[in-house]
Design a protein around this nucleic acid. Structure first.
Lengths: 225, 225
DNA sequence: TGATTGTCGATTGTTGACAATTCGGTTTTG
DNA sequence: CAAAACCGAATTGTCAACAATCGACAATCA
């Protein structure tokens, strides 16, 4: 292990556990027992607890006092909420720059789109990382560090929710490419009102299919209008 | 102490510490040593650590690895960012309801405004709690639990920043009453575009005075336009 | 029978001690 | 004399053991 990037046990456990959840190695609903993880990682319960608290904050696990901890089952409503929160942050970032992006930024977006276009349909992880990269360009434009961090934390939860839905995965790569193309086109237009609408639509499109799949009443959720 | 609401040591320490910071009993920049707090509260370092991690998440304290923890000095830029994030959440909530509030909700807002009108100028805590109550009506309208929680956490940091600024405190009660009256008027109008602008203005007005006070260049911060 | 109470195992909540790291000042060295 | 190496106190990071709490099942009593 390199001396340059010393990481605490808590940090290591945290990212290892996060990865396990995002890979569905730890499926939603799985019971998480501190002592077991401690044995598995070869550390004591202290760092485990602190890591789990962070994951709890990200909405990946759930604690019940004195009872236990489990991997959170993220519902359609949760995803709706998470996506709206991400959307509102991205819209803020866009309003801060008046909807004006540089040529370099558009080139970066195009590169991601091009990569997205070539993804084979089953490669969910690749789609997710491209999605992340593209939206990150928008968020970083604001140069607001807390905004970036809060936005990233919202990501983890929404990834779990989306990749565990069959309705979401059907035709994923193609669909995501189309949706993001439309989004970049809207950004090119430069009209913040249009962009705002495009961002919301972009996020609500996949959620809609998940809602339909789950049989929940769509009309209760305003942004599907 | 009631048996119904059992609280862990971590929770007790957390709210006690938060209060101390919000009351400026622990001033920005103050060094926070886990062992000292442990002695002061009569508990071990475990619960203290977990409470401090939560406060770190809220932006109230700052950890430097292996070095120490201190009460965060919140800058004008921090406040700018925190307020924008709060604003974006409130705007989201308003767009979700299409800018339509009920008569009951307006009555609740009016009650808060009336209370605000009578606050004497030095009573910062009272102003803060009224401000909180009024905006909470807007956020709760969304019925999105994570949104509410995230919004509340943003509050803590912005309270510290604002109450430690002289520029902010001058004529506070009067000013806050006027600003919030204008905001409620905008909400009555029901036009989401107008409301969005009113929300941003509402938050940026106090920040502007703090920026001017600090000598930072306003023109770098877009929402002062 | 069925509702209440008691007990037990599992798991979290908490503790005090130990290890590793950082920072400041002091000594050493060129 | 300046810079590098070094020490030591202070503080966080980590650990293993103990205490408190919860859920489930069994025992008890009307």
């Amino acid at each position: 292990m390199s001396q340059l990037s010393y990481r605490t046990l808590r940090e290591n456990v945290e990212s290892a556990l996060r990865m396990k959840i995002l890979n569905q190695e730890l499926a939603p609903g799985t019971r998480v027992v501190e002592q077991n993880l401690a044995k598995e990682f070869g550390v004591s319960r202290g760092p485990i607890r602190e890591a789990l608290r962070q994951l709890e904050h990200e909405g990946l696990v759930e604690y019940v006092r004195n009872a236990g901890c489990s991997v959170k089952k993220i519902t359609a409503e949760d995803l709706y909420e998470l996506y709206l929160m991400r959307a509102s942050y991205e819209i803020l970032s866009i309003e801060l720059c008046g909807g004006v992006f540089t040529g370099e930024e558009f080139q970066a977006m195009e590169r991601v789109l091009e990569e997205m276009r070539t993804i084979r349909d089953g490669d969910v992880n690749h789609v997710v990382s491209c999605d992340f990269a593209l939206h990150k360009i928008i968020i970083e434009k604001s140069r607001l560090p807390r905004l970036l961090k809060a936005w990233e934390e919202l990501n983890f939860g929404s990834i779990v929710a989306s990749i565990s839905s069959d309705a979401y995965q059907a035709g994923l790569a193609r669909r995501q490419f189309n949706i993001h193309s439309a989004l970049v086109d809207a950004l090119r237009g430069g009209d913040t009102a249009v962009i705002r609408r495009a961002i919301y639509d972009h996020y609500m499109f996949p959620v809609k299919s998940i809602f339909q799949d789950s049989g929940l009443p769509l009309e209760n959720y305003k942004f599907f209008a």
